[in-house]
């Protein structure tokens, strides 16, 4: 586990040292501030509108960041050839995958915390109120959703280059985020094989919608009870472990070609 932490630290150092992430964070925060203060349909003064738009953006931006950071790590090691000197150390491929995932996840969660703080600050400036316990629960569950997304990004990147892994991760997680909650509406009209396929997709893909507390925060429904929260966290942890195991299975006997370095 210590070796995994050392790998995670190198992911952090790369993010901190490469200035492009700061630029991205500043741009995203500026976009967040600008969009949440727009006065569409005269709703600009309504704090519900501000928090709704802000949280939607936080989900969108954190999703982009999670896929980009996680799908980049392993292909970059292979392209630069640093994978050879890394795997020549007494480190297992499982430790490498856990380290890369841990680094990517904690980086994205930190950026996510900045987004949530920005939303809270904008709402506070507009003299609005967000239930802090619901907001914290929403943030925690959002971070667990990001744990699954980063694990998916890592899993795809074990066998693909960055571009392919990022594209497939976006399609896979995007379908889960946006289409999955709508499937029951379509499935009731279907029969036979199509209904079975829809049911398989509905139950097979990760349900990010149940980890999404935006509506509870925006409409002030209050926090969920402890047992529900625990069940959601366990669900997210199981899925994260599942995708990390897939990543390890795909990576444990992978051959590295020298032609990748040329």
């Amino acid at each position: 586990m210590t070796k995994g932490l050392i790998i995670a630290v190198t992911v952090w150092l790369k993010v901190i040292r490469k200035k492009d992430v700061y630029v991205l964070l500043i741009l995203l925060s500026a976009l967040l501030s600008w969009l949440t203060t727009m006065n569409i349909f005269g709703l600009g003064g309504t704090t519900r509108y501000v928090s709704d738009t802000g949280l939607l953006l936080a989900w969108f931006l954190a999703w982009i960041l999670a896929v980009n950071v996680s799908a980049r790590e392993l292909p970059e090691e292979e392209n630069r050839g640093t994978i050879f000197s890394l795997l020549a150390k007494p480190i297992t491929r499982a430790e490498l995958i856990i380290g890369k995932w841990l680094g990517a996840w904690t980086v994205v969660c930190t950026a996510n915390a900045v987004f949530y703080l920005a939303i809270w600050a904008i709402v506070a400036v507009k003299s609005g109120y967000i239930d802090p316990s619901a907001m914290i629960q929403g943030f925690v569950l959002h971070c667990f959703a990001l744990a699954i997304i980063t694990a998916i990004g890592i899993a795809f990147s074990t066998r693909m280059n960055f571009d392919a892994a990022a594209t497939i991760s976006f399609v896979f997680t995007g379908a889960s985020l946006l289409l999955l909650p709508r499937i029951p509406e379509f499935a009731v009209k279907e029969k036979g094989l199509r209904a079975v396929v829809m049911s398989l997709i509905y139950h097979g893909l990760p349900h990010f919608d149940i980890l999404d507390m935006r509506q509870r925060i925006v409409h002030d429904y209050g926090p969920v009870d402890v047992s529900t929260m625990a069940a959601l966290v366990i669900y997210a942890m199981l899925l994260t472990v599942f995708f990390l195991v897939i990543a390890w299975l795909a990576y444990r006997k992978k051959l590295f070609s020298r032609s990748e370095l040329m």
Binding site: I6, V9, L13, R17, G81, F84, S85, P90, I91
Partner: peptide, 27 residues
């Protein structure tokens, strides 16, 4: 074992001292 790869490369965002230090920690 110590291993130097053909066409070696390392994390260029680190300083030389940090690169050695991180490698040492892996051991």
């Amino acid at each position: 074992i110590g291993y130097l790869a053909e066409h070696p490369d390392t994390y260029r965002f680190l300083t030389g001292r940090e690169a050695l230090s991180i490698t040492g920690r892996l051991f």
